[in-house]
Design a protein around this nucleic acid. Sequence first.
DNA 1: CTGAAAGCGCTAACAT
DNA 2: ATGTTAGCGCTTTCAG
Lengths: 337, 337
Amino acid sequence: MPATIRDVARASGVHISTVSRAFSAPQLVNPETRSKVLETAEKLGYRPNRAARALITGRTHNIGLIVADIANPFFPPLIKAAEREARHRDYHVFVADSNEDPAVEEELVRALAKQVDGILLVSPRLANSIIEGLSREAALVVVNRQVPGLPSVVMDVSQGARSAIEHLAELGHRSIGYLGGPRGSWTNREIRRAATAAARTLGGPGDPVEVTALGPNAPTGDGGLIAAEQVHRAGFTAVLAYNDLMAIGLIEGLATLGVRVPQDVSVVGIDDIALSRLTRPGLTTVANPTAAAGRAAVDMLLQHGDDRRTTGQITLATELVIRDSTGPGPQGNADPG
Amino acid sequence: MPATIRDVARASGVHISTVSRAFSAPQLVNPETRSKVLETAEKLGYRPNRAARALITGRTHNIGLIVADIANPFFPPLIKAAEREARHRDYHVFVADSNEDPAVEEELVRALAKQVDGILLVSPRLANSIIEGLSREAALVVVNRQVPGLPSVVMDVSQGARSAIEHLAELGHRSIGYLGGPRGSWTNREIRRAATAAARTLGGPGDPVEVTALGPNAPTGDGGLIAAEQVHRAGFTAVLAYNDLMAIGLIEGLATLGVRVPQDVSVVGIDDIALSRLTRPGLTTVANPTAAAGRAAVDMLLQHGDDRRTTGQITLATELVIRDSTGPGPQGNADPG
DNA sequence: CTGAAAGCGCTAACAT
DNA sequence: ATGTTAGCGCTTTCAG
C-alpha cells in the first residue's frame, strides 16, 4: 500500500492541502514547511497519484501516440524521440499500433481520448472528415500528413522526391518508375505528385524524363520484393521507392532476376532508416528527420495547452543521401525498351 | 466537455449506480434497463473515465513497458506484440525508453508504478537487488533475464548459442570468437557461458574447439563495425555476435578490411531481426521469438492479478536459421550434418 | 501562509 | 433489480 497525501500530512504535522501545495504550488507555502513536507514525503516514498490529480485538474500528463506499425523501422526513432521529449516535460506516452487499419486507428483515438491530454497521429490512414471529427474528442497533432484546421508536422517529401528525380535525371536516366506505397497514404500521393511534376521540368526538348507510377504496394520489404518482376518487365532504368524497406526488398528481388543495382537499374529509397547504410549496395535515399518530427509534434501538442484549434504546420527539410544504389543511366538513350 | 456517468443517468432516467453496473457488472442489472442505458450512453458518446474508476478499484487497466532502446530493431516486434495482446484484454500500454541507462530504468519504474497495474521490464540492466526492491512498488515481469523470485520470460539463448557453436564446429571451425554485448547484460553472460561450454563438448581429442570472448561492445551496428579490426587481428575463422545488428556491422567492417564473409570468416548473429534476411550475405542467426515473448509477458503480468510474488519462469525455444554468412572452415568440411 | 470543506467521476457496500 | 451513501486521492475555493 503506497503512501498517500494523508500519510504525508500526518507524518509532517500539517494539513493535506499544505502537502498538496508543497508539490503543485510551491510558492504558496513557507519554504521551511515545504522542505519538511518534501522530506517526509521522500522518506515515505510518496508520489502524488496522477489519476486522482487528473480527476480534478483535467490534465492527465499523458499523451497518446498512434502509429501504423511499430515494427516498421521508420517509426521507432520517431517514437523514441517523442517519448523522450514527453518525459522531459513530465509526460508519459501511451503507444498504440493500428496495424495499418484505419478502423483500429479511429477506435484507438476514442479509447485513449479520456486518458490523455492529446494524441499524436502518425501517418494516419483515416479520411480527413473522420480526423476532423476525432479532433473534437481529443487534442490532435497529425504527423506525416496535413489536415485542414489541424496542427501538423510533415517532412518535406515533395522536395525530397524532387531531389531524387533530379539526381536520377542528372545521371542520365529517362525512364523512371515510382514504386508506390499503400492506398490512402497522404505521403504516397505527395511523392507521386512531386516526382511526376519534377520530371516535367527536367530533360531537354525531345529528351523527356518520364516517371511512371506503380502500385499500390505494401510498404514493406516484401512489397518491394514482389514488385521486382513488374519493375523489370517495365524496363525502367531507375526506380524511386515509397520507402527504404521497399527499395531494399526491390534490390533483393532484382538480384534474384539477375538484375544488378546500380549497374542495370538504379534504386532510390525514402526515409534513411538505420538499415540503409548497412546493406550492400548502400542505399541512396531521401533522409527524413523522423526524430526531429517526433520532438516537434510533442512540442506542438503540449505548447498549446487546451486550445485545440491551432493550425500551426511545421515542415521539416529532407535531404538526399547518395550512396551506392544509384549510377549512370543509359547514355544517349531516352527510352530504353 | 465529455459526457459523465451522471449525464447518462439523467438522460436514461436511472440512478448513476445503475449506469455504473450496466458497464461493470452487467449481470446485476435488468437486460432492458441495461440496453436502454447503453443506448443513451452510445448516443451521448459516453465512455467511463478510467482514472476515476482506477481511483476506487485500484486497477488502472494500464501496463508499463520499459525497454533499453526502442530504436534497436530487436524491440519493436516485442513492443508491438505486447501492445496488441494488452489491448485485446482492454489494457493500454505506456512505452518508455531507458536509453540503456540503468538509473533511468529505475526512475521509470518508480514514475510509472502508480499509474499501471504492472510493468514489463525488458532486458533490464539493473542489479538483481534493485529489481527486487522495485518489485515492491509495482508488479513486475522481467523479460530476457531471470531474477530470483520474480516471474520472467526468457528466450533460450543458451540453447541458441550452443546450436550456433555446433553449426560452426561442424563446418570445421576451431577458432571462434564471441563478439560480446554490453556490460551488465544478463543475456550476454548467458551466451558467453553457453558458447564456451558448448565448445568444450565439441571437437575431437587433439582437435579442440575454442571460443574466445571479446567485449564489452555497444549492441549496435557501430559496435560490430568498430570491432572488425580486432576480430581480424585475432585470426578467428568464425564469429558469433551478441546480436544481429553487431553481426551486420561486423560483416560491413570486415568487408572494408578486405575480409569476405563467409569465404574468409563465418559470422552468426542472434535475434533474426527483419533486416537479417535482407542483407547480403543473408545472415545466419539464432532466431528469437520476440513477439511470442511479448505476448507471454503480458499474459503473465495480467494473469496473476494482484499476487505479486509469482515465480513462474517461461523459457521460449530459439532456432538456428542458416543463411549465407556461414561457410566451411579451414578444414574444408563443406557439408554439415 | 495554512486549514476546512467541497467535489472531480466513479464503484461498492448496504438498503430496499 | 435499483437507489443511497460513502469515499478512492487529490486540488481548489474560501476562511482565517
